[in-house]
Amino acid sequence: MNSESIQWDLEFFLKSRSFQELSPEQQSWVLQQISQPEYESQRWTLLASADYFRADSVPPPPPLERVLQRYERRHPRQGNLSWLAQISTWRVPAWQLTMALICGWLFGQWNIGQHHSGLSLVPQIVYQTDTIVREIPVYIGLTSKGKASYQSASEEKAAGQTHSSPSTRPRGTTNSIARDRDLLDLTVGMQ
């Protein structure tokens, strides 16, 4: 029999009967564990402590309502709050930064929406109807007759024909046709 089981039985004897009330066999068994005075002392301590625990009034626990109130404070009911109050209960650190990020994100979304809403740039081909003629001096060599076929561009400009069209010019010679073609090429080149 080990000491643990002895203690268990000893406790039962201590709680239930005095040393004199034990049978001779029980007394001899108890005396193998502890002395008689020690048995009496432990028995008295055990009973006196139990009496004390029973008699000593323990202060009442806090009321249930207080516990529930603390719970409510920690976990507020969502249904009783307006949406604005709910937002105010959110615990977001650095709310200024958070708000700035949200605003930036919203602006970005709006900007993307604008881009895709039909106002975007569509490439179109614009055909220019007017011809801007820029006259460039063209020097043509003398003909076999020793007479120049055309005046130079500066001379024509001085004569007030800065925007003359090819149709106003004298025609009829090979050189005039070549000049018209040159001007046309230049015009196309400018475009």
Binding site: Q7, S41, L46
Partner: peptide, 30 residues
């Protein structure tokens, strides 16, 4: 383990009884 609990109870009771011996009306001297 249960054995440890019993052992702790035994030592606790022994120490308490030594502390409270002056209050024991039988004034048993061990």
């Amino acid at each position: 383990p249960e054995g440890t609990v019993k052992s702790r109870l035994h030592y606790a009771l022994r120490q308490l009884s030594r502390h409270l011996r002056p209050f024991n009306p039988k004034k048993i001297e061990s």
